[in-house]
């Protein structure tokens, strides 16, 4: 029984950063922005989360700083891709590398370390114990005692689905991606909608980063997002941006993450670390098979 709850808990915490970043990505996806900067935003968020948590002795300030840091990346993206009309793909690639360089540089400048920074002074984001739910026999260990960000993530999924499909802003968001000129001619600036979608993406990637460095583990290491931003991009593309689909896919990736840890008893850890990436390839395979069927 413990193995199963452990596996489920591993799945949930493995899925959370991917899910948050992918939800951010889905806003830009609907707005018609080819945004591949989630990786860099997440990494910046992770760094600033540690910075804030360490200097203010508070996990709340960690989250706030993570969001600010990630928002700065989003603002650079907006400045180049929306205002100056630079190619989105190019901006995204440059921004990801900028994030990698800047976080490594700042880690060295501010904390005087190379590779990774861990310190007992970093305050992690607490786990929330819900009194009544904890008493439920099997589900108690899953429903209660999770990291705060995980509960926020559940809320974000519901909110995103609501905003995108049920509100005026959501309608405009989808219109900006579907047919920007007709949105513009109806008096709503599609550029403004894109800017808002990127800001939302920045906030959510900041949360994802904060979870990585203050929830999943309590440290910052060089390039710690390790391709999760790319996996989240794959998740968005796989389900055509539907928030519920993204939640499902992210859980699947989280499951492979936990499965990899379990398999470590039987094979070298290098192979188990490959599992999420191989799973992404397999998921893409099924997606393309389905897409072909739909076409035929």
């Amino acid at each position: 029984m413990n193995i199963i709850t452990g596996l489920i808990n591993g799945m949930i915490s493995g899925a959370t950063p991917i899910l948050l970043a992918a939800l951010g990505g889905t806003f830009t996806f609907y707005a018609g922005v080819f945004n591949i900067a989630m990786e860099g935003m997440m990494l910046t968020g992770a760094f600033f989360a540690v910075l804030g948590s360490y200097y203010f002795d508070s996990w709340l300030m960690g989250i706030v700083c993570a969001i600010i840091g990630s928002l700065m990346m989003a603002l650079i993206f907006i400045l180049f891709a929306v205002t100056l009309k630079t190619d989105e793909f190019v901006t995204g690639i440059a921004l990801n590398l900028f994030a990698l360089g800047a976080t490594t540089y700042m880690m060295r400048q501010i904390f005087n370390v190379k590779g990774a920074f861990s310190n007992p002074g970093i305050v992690p984001i607490p786990r929330i114990h819900i009194p009544l739910l904890a008493k439920i026999p099997i589900l108690g260990n899953i429903l209660s005692g999770q990291n705060l960000i995980i509960y926020i993530t559940v809320l974000v999924v519901i909110l995103s689905a609501f905003i995108i499909f049920k509100t005026r802003f959501g309608l405009r968001l989808r219109a900006a991606g579907y047919n920007a000129p007709s949105l513009d001619s109806s008096g709503v600036s599609s550029a403004k909608i894109r800017i808002w979608s990127l800001i939302i993406c920045g906030v959510l990637c900041g949360l994802a980063g904060a979870f990585l460095s203050l929830g999943y583990v309590t440290l910052f290491s060089e390039n710690m997002s390790a391709g999760r931003g790319w996996i989240s991009l794959a998740a968005v593309i796989l389900v055509n941006g539907n928030p519920w689909g993204i939640a499902l896919i992210s859980l699947l990736f989280g499951f492979t993450d936990g499965l990899g840890l379990l398999l470590q008893q039987y094979m070298p850890s290098q192979f188990t670390s490959m599992v999420p990436y191989v799973a992404t390839l397999i998921a893409l395979y099924f997606y393309s098979i389905q897409a072909r069927k739909r076409k035929a």
Binding site: F80, L84, L97, F98, L100, T104, Y105, R108
Partner: peptide
């Protein structure tokens, strides 16, 4: 100045040149 500064400088160069190119063309 630590070596990692160069990584930042490279990314800034890329962004400035690419954005500048588009802007110059316009």
């Amino acid at each position: 100045v630590p070596r990692e500064f160069i990584q930042v400088l490279q990314a800034v160069t890329v962004l400035v040149i690419v954005a500048g190119r588009g802007y110059l063309d316009i």
